[in-house]
Design a protein around this nucleic acid. Structure first.
Length: 152
DNA sequence: GCCAACGTTGGC
DNA sequence: GCCAACGTTGGC
């Protein structure tokens, strides 16, 4: 079982939306590094921190579980979708998604606090200018962030 | 809204 | 395969 962090803009899709839906696909990842992790490494049962970006309270806000491994993201074929990719062919889909299930909210762990924690210096999120939308989290980092919520 | 940092594209 | 130009991301 591995740990991950998924970024989302809460104006588009928030932890509250996920809680309401209970289960959701994670569509719209259009970055090769992030795609490769979904395609090759993310497994059913993996644990995911949900992170809110581009908003007032930037940081980790909750936990979800992976319930379905990579399969084609159909939005890439939908011309009406903002995630449409005209260069992707249905017989050879370029982009994939996974499904996750809501687990619980966490008390916000802000980016500011994560940046200030030396134990998280290697987290891609904290390293200068990283814009990865999906990134691996080590066991140590996972538990450190959980500790920072003060809730365990 | 600004802007730094990073990814992608395309000409050569 | 290099690299300059361009587009996007995301914190502030």
């Amino acid at each position: 079982m591995a740990y991950w962090l998924f970024k989302t803009e809460p104006d588009t899709f928030s932890i509250d939306t996920l809680k309401q839906q209970k289960v959701s696909c994670w569509e719209g990842v259009r970055n090769y590094q992030a795609r490769n992790m979904m395609r090759d490494e993310i497994k059913v049962g993996d644990q995911v921190f949900i992170y809110h970006s581009s908003c007032k309270d930037v940081g980790v806000v909750g936990i979800a579980t992976v319930i379905r491994e990579a399969y084609p993201d159909h939005f890439q074929f939908d011309p009406e979708s903002p995630y449409f990719d005209p260069k992707s062919a249905p017989e050879n889909p370029r982009w994939v998604m996974v499904d996750i299930e809501y687990q619980r909210h966490l008390r916000l762990v802000s980016l500011k606090r994560m940046k200030a924690n030396p134990a998280l210096a290697e987290l891609p999120l904290v390293q200068r200018g990283s814009r990865l939308s999906i990134m691996p989290v080590t066991d140590v980092q996972w538990h450190e962030i959980l500790q920072m919520t003060g809730q365990f």
